[in-house]
Simulated assay, not measured.
Amino acid sequence: MVAMKQARHPERDEITLIAVVGALSDPIRLGLVRVLADGRERGWSELRAPVAKSTLSHHLRVLRDAGITRTRQEGTRCFVELRRDDLDARFPRLLGALLSAADSDDVGAAVGLADDAPAA
């Protein structure tokens, strides 16, 4: 049996404001966080974004490396979830404020779930 390489996730106290704000400065990444804000773990194949799969993978890695998401691999499938509890513990109300502003300005609206109709 071949052991799969597990992604490194920063510990809660290693998550920095600069990394979080930098990662969320991209509309695609902010859109991914908006999708994940419902608290459900999603398979990468469930996510829809107007970018190539390799670019989507890059965006998901940036979010993981910043401590915003947690990625879990199961066989050949990858799943991602928002680390809301960790983010709220480190930066109270920051995520809520960013999500509210993103919703208000419709930032990241082109990102959704594969079974949703594409944004106009």
Score class of each variant (00 low, 15 high):
R72C: 09
R64C: 06
R29M: 06
T76A: 15
E41W: 01
E14P: 04
L87F: 05
E11R: 13
P27Y: 10
I15E: 11
T55F: 10
I18S: 00
R77V: 07
H9F: 09
M1Q: 15
H9W: 10
T16W: 09
R29A: 05
I28V: 15
T16G: 03
R61E: 02
I68D: 02
I15R: 01
T16Y: 02
R72G: 08
P27E: 07
A119K: 03
D38Q: 11
S104L: 13
R61P: 00
F79A: 04
G96Y: 05
L82T: 01
K5Y: 15
P92H: 08
Q6A: 12
A49P: 06
F91P: 07
V20L: 12
G43P: 06
E41T: 11
E46S: 05
E41R: 02
L95G: 01
G75T: 13
D38Y: 15
A49R: 00
A120M: 10
Q73D: 06
P27T: 05
R61K: 03
T55W: 00
P10C: 06
T55Q: 11
G43Y: 01
R29I: 13
H59L: 07
R72Q: 14
H59E: 12
K5R: 15
E11T: 02
P50A: 03
P10F: 12
G22Y: 03
V21G: 02
H9Q: 13
R42N: 03
V21T: 12
R70G: 03
A19L: 04
A101Y: 08
V35M: 01
M1N: 14
D88W: 09
R83T: 04
T16C: 02
S57T: 10
A117V: 15
V62F: 13
T71N: 09
S54R: 11
M4F: 14
P118S: 02
A97R: 08
W44Q: 14
F79P: 13
A37Q: 07
L98R: 04
V33D: 05
R83Q: 03
I18R: 15
S57F: 05
L60W: 05
I18E: 10
R48Y: 03
M4D: 01
K53T: 08
S45Y: 12
H58F: 12
D115G: 00
R83P: 04
A37N: 15
D38K: 10
I18M: 13
L113A: 12
G67R: 06
D65G: 03
P50Y: 13
T55D: 05
T16E: 08
L94K: 04
V62D: 09
P27Q: 13
H58Y: 12
E74S: 01
L56W: 04
V62H: 04
L32E: 03
A37M: 00
S25W: 08
R29D: 04
A19C: 07
M1F: 12
A23L: 05
L17E: 07
A119N: 02
R84H: 08
V20F: 07
D65A: 14
H9M: 06
D65L: 02
P118L: 11
R70E: 15
R12G: 05
V80F: 07
A52L: 10
L17F: 15
G67P: 02
E41K: 09
D85K: 02
M4G: 11
G112V: 01
A110C: 00
H58Q: 11
D65N: 12
V51A: 07
L82P: 09
R34D: 03
R77C: 00
E11D: 15
E41M: 07
A66T: 09
